[in-house]
């Protein structure tokens, strides 16, 4: 199999994911609604004052983004597992790591990117001062691929279990902590008027590292789950 056919396989796989998502729009829309609703709950719970909301906004948005990424993650490989196409992927001559990367990419395009686009509205609702908006969007842009890759690992590990939801969050949330630390620190420092480039570079480094290593783990986990 040559390079061109690898590429066509990846493209076909991603197109299929988009088609499935188009047929079942609620699967990709519901997590976004979840984010908006939880963001709405916070001002009601802690009071609508500017200082408090602006102070906690980066943290709230990031925690909500983590939870939303867990919400849909159980389904990442579930349908492919049930209808046997995951098995086909394992058997296909293309490296499974490449196909895992394709799945991660389409998951990010369907769940991560909309979240990045939605984040200014969340920032508006939570009265995040305007200095933080760009940094918030940049952290989400760099961070959501990490979320997609890590949830892919968790989803691949638990795909053969009927009910992986709570287990999945137990497995994944501790691994998200560095991400949370650097992302909120970046927004905080740009709120203080300091450059956030250091934290953003760290996030970019994490992203590269995760996208390099996660496909290996996902492929190993799929092989374990399928056989």
């Amino acid at each position: 199999m040559n390079k061109a056919s690898y590429r066509s396989l990846v493209v076909a796989l991603m197109q299929r994911d988009f088609k499935v998502a188009m047929r079942r729009k609620s699967d990709s829309i519901n997590p976004l609604l979840f984010v908006l609703m939880v963001v709405t709950l916070f001002p009601i719970a802690v009071g609508p004052s500017h200082e408090v909301l602006g102070r906690i906004a980066p943290g709230v948005i990031w925690v909500v983004a983590l939870l939303a990424s867990l919400l849909g993650s159980e389904r990442l490989f579930r349908d492919d597992y049930l209808d046997g196409s995951l098995e086909q992927m394992v058997l296909s001559p293309a490296p499974l790591e490449l196909l895992a990367l394709a799945k991660i990419s389409s998951h990010w395009l369907l769940s991560g990117l909309p979240l990045v686009i939605l984040s200014p509205f969340c920032a508006l609702l939570l009265k995040l001062p305007i200095e933080g908006w760009l940094t918030l969007m940049l952290t989400l842009l760099l961070g959501t691929p990490i979320l997609s890759a890590m949830t892919a690992i968790g989803a691949a590990l638990t795909v053969s279990l009927g009910r992986g939801g709570a287990l999945l969050s137990l497995l994944l949330l501790p691994l998200f902590i560095p991400l949370l630390i650097f992302a909120t620190a970046a927004v905080d420092s740009s709120l203080l008027g300091m450059p956030a480039i250091g934290q953003l570079l760290f996030l970019a480094g994490f992203m590269v590292l995760t996208l390099t290593l996660a496909p290996l783990a996902v492929a190993a986990a799929i092989k374990v789950s399928v056989n």
């Binding site: 638990t158 053969s160 992986g164 497995l171 783990a217 986990a221 374990v224």
Partner: peptide
Amino acid sequence: AFSDNRTGAKAASIL
């Protein structure tokens, strides 16, 4: 979590 112990052990190793 797995009823098949072998799968569980391998999944736990990856984790």
